[in-house]
Design a protein around this nucleic acid. Structure first.
Length: 584
RNA sequence: GCGCCCGUAGCUCAGCUGGAUAGAGCACUAGACUACGAAUCUAGGGGUCGGGAGUUCGAAUCUUCCCGGGCGCGCCA
């Protein structure tokens, strides 16, 4: 149920009637006809562009056509007024009842209100976080984690079957480095004196625990052996240990995944060579030499023939190497195999949430997906930009522990997971974001999470107080849904209802553009309308939610408040936050 | 040099995928509490939407060229 569509359909059906009656030419395409909200209330609630977009094909001026359509719409009971304005807008003001009858629907649907069938049950794979298993997560990872998680929630609200996935990059040389770093800490744990972590190894203290766990499991078994002997086992042990760290971090943030796919498993199964053979058979692979990039000095550049994928055939700027000089597959080759693997598991539609530093990688990956799925699969990449961690407007001090950065865990412990989640969604994902550790704890409207939660808490407070003032009234959702809502006619009330009415549209738009931050913006707006109306009750008692001498009005206002609460809850659910009943 | 992203109020940003007089918050100014929780709200000033040209009924939005900023640019992941 999306009222934009309802009204748009009313307009279209009247136009179709006019066509049938021969008053308009028959070959009009109504696809562009729609309605939108108006900025200025004097223009009514909604405005349709019908007269403007159809003027040319109808061979009439927008004004002429508009008058014909307006004439028809005036006969309908849904509108309080219909008028032609400006360059040809058809302004529509709905009768209050059109809005108020929405409330029972919200109350009955509960948190499901706003769900839509945009996805029509189609499956979509959302891959996010995929942080290298070489250490705990930091605040930058958290942004991708939250965006991916919220996007998953959003798409499933919009009717998609969502699978959430984490790709474990456990095959590259960085894992060897990790294993060596663990071995060093391991020897240290067994009493060897280590003065300084050599360059090129991970210095993080978190590896001490991993080493301790290894000692506990295996004693000094790996201590004196050659690297060739211990490397494979320590790799596995280290990956396991790091992934358990990361899983703990994700849990602390409330981020979930359905599937964890390991790169090394794919490599081990030969998926990489398979996929390259596949590309060869499609004649998309050749041995060639790339030109050195211009405008960038590469000291160690040498001309070298390489195994290249013809990504330029699919819109990339240059062809891309699949194999390294030492014969290993490039990360790109693995990634092609991985995306084919996703496709073969039934995901035609794939979304990856990546850090903005992977921007240069997007074209080649899209090209590869196009090639390997023979254009049946689509890849969509959501890039997320940097997070600047601040403290009172200044860059936050880095953790004192050597070789460490501010970990996600430290931030979550400091401000809570809900604050992290909400703030991560207060900016478009590809814009850099300031995250101020002080501000997110402030109990003021500077802090959007607080502002939204406060509105929800006030809703709960209204209901609690109404039960005390009117012990005999039934104020559960289904009873409220039966109330006659005709008393709701104040502009502030109707504004809130219109906003509630637009929630399904907001969900649909956010899902279409894959921008979960739009949900956060919407919630702030809705909260503002609620706070505004609330405050008018301070100076004008008749505008309070609870009107002591008027139980009927109280019921209707409580129903409205409750509906606001439901929609806030529904939006917070997308973001992954539990609404609060009180804030004391 | 090439590719992508960005430039909107003093600051931080929205702007519903081309709509009417471009909007919020912060800051500034002036107001509203014997409280349905004032942790909030109301009002006011503040703009050549980086610049020029184009597309059309109509452009912050689309095209193009400049200016300014960010990121990326074999064998790292």
């Amino acid at each position: 149920m999306n009222y934009f569509k309802v009204v748009s359909e009313i307009v279209c059906s009247e136009i179709r009637n006019l066509i049938e009656e021969g008053k308009l030419v028959s070959d009009l395409n109504l696809g562009q006809v729609g309605v939108e909200t108006t900025k200025d209330p004097v223009h009514g609630d909604l405005a349709s562009n019908a007269a403007m977009v159809l003027a040319k094909p109808a061979k009439k001026s927008p004004k002429e056509l508009g008058e014909i359509i307006v004439d028809r719409l005036l006969k309908r009971s849904e509108f309080e007024f219909v008028s032609l304005a400006g360059p040809g807008f058809i302004n529509l003001k709905m009768v209050p009842k059109f809005w108020t009858r929405l409330l029972p629907r919200v109350l009955e649907s509960g948190l499901k209100y706003g769900d839509c069938d945009l996805g029509r049950g189609k499956t979509v794979n959302v891959e996010y976080v995929s942080a290298n298993p070489t250490g705990p997560m930091h605040i930058g990872h958290a942004r991708g984690a939250v965006i991916g998680d919220a996007l998953g929630n959003l798409l499933s609200k919009a009717g998609y079957e969502v699978s959430r996935e984490y790709y474990i990059n456990d095959a590259g040389v960085q894992i060897d480095v990790l294993a060596r770093s663990v071995h060093l800490r391991y020897r240290q744990a067994l009493g060897e004196k280590i003065d300084k972590i050599p360059d090129g190894l991970y210095p993080g203290e978190y590896l001490k625990q991993t080493a301790k766990d290894l000692v506990e499991r295996d004693g000094n078994k790996w201590c004196k052996l050659k690297e060739e002997i211990w490397l494979p086992e320590l790799r596995n042990f280290a990956i396991e240990s790091m992934m358990s760290l990361i899983r703990d971090d994700l849990t602390a943030l409330g981020v979930v995944h359905d599937v964890f796919t390991s790169e090394s498993t794919l490599v081990f199964n030969g998926s990489n060579s398979e996929v390259v053979n596949e590309l060869k058979s499609l004649d998309l692979v050749y041995i060639g030499t790339l030109k050195p990039p211009k405008g960038k000095i590469l000291e160690d550049w040498e001309k070298r023939p390489q195994l290249l994928f013809r990504s330029t055939k699919f819109g990339d700027d240059v062809d891309r190497p699949l194999q390294k000089a030492d014969g290993d597959w490039t990360y790109f080759a693995s990634d092609i195999a991985y995306h084919l693997n996703k496709f073969e598991r039934g995901f035609n539609s794939m979304i990856n949430v990546w850090g903005a530093d992977h921007k240069g990688y997007v074209k080649r990956m899209k090209a590869a997906v196009k090639a390997i799925t023979r254009d049946k699969g689509t890849l969509n990449v959501q890039l997320c930009n940097l997070v600047n961690l601040l403290e009172d407007g200044r860059p936050a001090k880095m953790s004192k522990r050597a070789g460490s950065f501010v970990t996600l865990r430290e931030v979550v412990d400091e401000v809570g997971k809900d604050a992290v989640r909400f703030i991560m969604l207060t900016r478009n994902s590809d814009a850099p974001l300031d995250f101020d550790l002080r501000k997110v704890l402030e109990q003021s409207k500077d802090n959007p999470l607080f502002y939204v939660q406060y509105a929800h808490a006030r809703v709960c407070s209204v209901i609690r107080n109404a039960r005390v003032s009117f012990p005999s009234l039934l104020l559960d959702d289904s009873s409220l849904a039966k109330a006659d809502m005709n008393g709701l006619s104040d502009p502030g009330e109707l504004k809130m209802i219109r906003e509630l009415a637009s929630w399904p549209e907001v969900v649909e738009r956010a899902a279409m553009s894959k921008e979960p931050h739009k949900i956060a913006f919407y919630l702030s707006d809705l909260a503002a309308s609620f706070h505004a109306f609330w405050n008018r009750g301070n100076s004008e008692e008749s505008l309070r939610f609870i009107v002591l001498d008027n139980p009927q009005q109280t019921i209707e206002r409580v129903a409205l408040a409750r509906a606001v609460g439901i929609v806030i809850g529904s939006g917070l659910a997308v973001i992954g936050i539990e609404p609060l009943e009180e804030m004391r």
